[in-house]
Computed example of a mutant assay.
Amino acid sequence: MHDDPTAHRPARAGLRFPVRTAVAAGAAAVLVALAAARGTGTTASTPPAPPAPPAPAAADQRGESSDDPPEGRALTPFDTRHPAVGRLDAHLLKAVQRAARDARRDGVEFRITSGRRSAEHQQRLLDEATEKYGSAEVARQYVNTPGKSAHVSGKAVDIGPTDADDWLVRHGSDYGLCQVYTNEMWHFELLTAPGGECPAQLRNAAG
């Protein structure tokens, strides 16, 4: 005689209902917890706001003379934040920096006494020279016009002190740097390839 196949069905049915009830209750609890969390803003943290950009530097009140070396402080070839240095032609600046590093090994420090100039700055220098020497013709031997000055285009640099000039006169061509005028041992331009030969010097800025 076989067992009655329906003998255990009520027991199995009775087990299923408590499981469904427990699952439903658990889901409800999760939903309640999520809703409460949303209300308190703890489900996801708000990403932090990006940092504010730095405030722009105050404008230089010197206007057209902003490329003047700062009073009381000599510029080096590495003071690129100053317009007189930072706005030099990139190839010229790189050559001067290389030379400065090598000169330092010989105990010689480069200083930039004048670098890139605005056209207004150059004209002011020419006017001052004209007043000093009494004529524009004589002044032009020392200060070029804004339209011809390599300082205005950022392709000339004046180096000091004298021992640095002397070092660069002797070694400048190794970096492509050449003294341009015989009456200005401090004025250098990038006029040849490194290791090349510098062109003949001009008598003065007037040519």
Rank of each mutant, 00 (worst) to 15 (best):
A11M: 12
T43E: 08
D67N: 15
A119L: 04
D79L: 06
P54A: 13
V180M: 14
L177G: 05
V19F: 08
E128M: 02
R124W: 02
V96R: 03
V23Q: 01
R124P: 01
E109T: 15
T182M: 14
T76N: 10
A25Q: 00
P10H: 05
P5Q: 01
T40L: 13
L31E: 00
A74K: 13
L34F: 13
H82M: 08
A103R: 08
P146F: 05
G195P: 03
V157S: 10
G41Y: 06
G195Y: 00
P18H: 00
V152H: 06
A103F: 07
L15E: 11
D106C: 12
L31V: 09
D79S: 07
D106M: 10
V180P: 11
T145D: 13
V96G: 07
V19L: 14
A136R: 11
V138I: 12
D106A: 15
T182R: 15
R101F: 02
I112E: 08
G115L: 12
A95E: 04
A37W: 05
G154F: 06
Q61T: 15
A139Q: 03
A52Y: 00
L92M: 10
A44I: 10
H91W: 01
R170W: 12
A57G: 14
A99V: 09
P50T: 02
T130Y: 01
G147V: 10
R38K: 03
V152E: 05
V108R: 09
T40E: 12
S66D: 15
L190H: 03
L190E: 04
G176R: 04
G160E: 14
I159L: 08
A58N: 11
H121A: 13
Y175H: 06
G160W: 10
L93F: 04
T182W: 06
F78S: 02
K148T: 15
T6M: 11
R105A: 13
T43R: 07
P69F: 10
R9P: 04
L202T: 02
P48D: 08
H187G: 08
L177P: 07
L15S: 08
V85P: 09
P18Y: 00
A58F: 06
T6V: 09
V85Q: 06
E131L: 02
I112F: 07
R105S: 12
Q122G: 06
L15Y: 03
A150M: 13
A129N: 01
Q201A: 09
T162I: 09
V143D: 03
D89G: 08
Q179A: 11
A200L: 02
M185R: 11
F17Y: 07
P56D: 05
A206N: 09
P18R: 04
A13G: 14
A44C: 10
H2R: 04
P54F: 05
A136C: 00
F17C: 05
C198E: 03
Q122F: 05
K148W: 08
K132L: 02
D4C: 00
G147S: 14
A103C: 10
R170K: 15
A58V: 14
T43L: 15
R73V: 15
A119S: 13
T6D: 09
M185L: 07
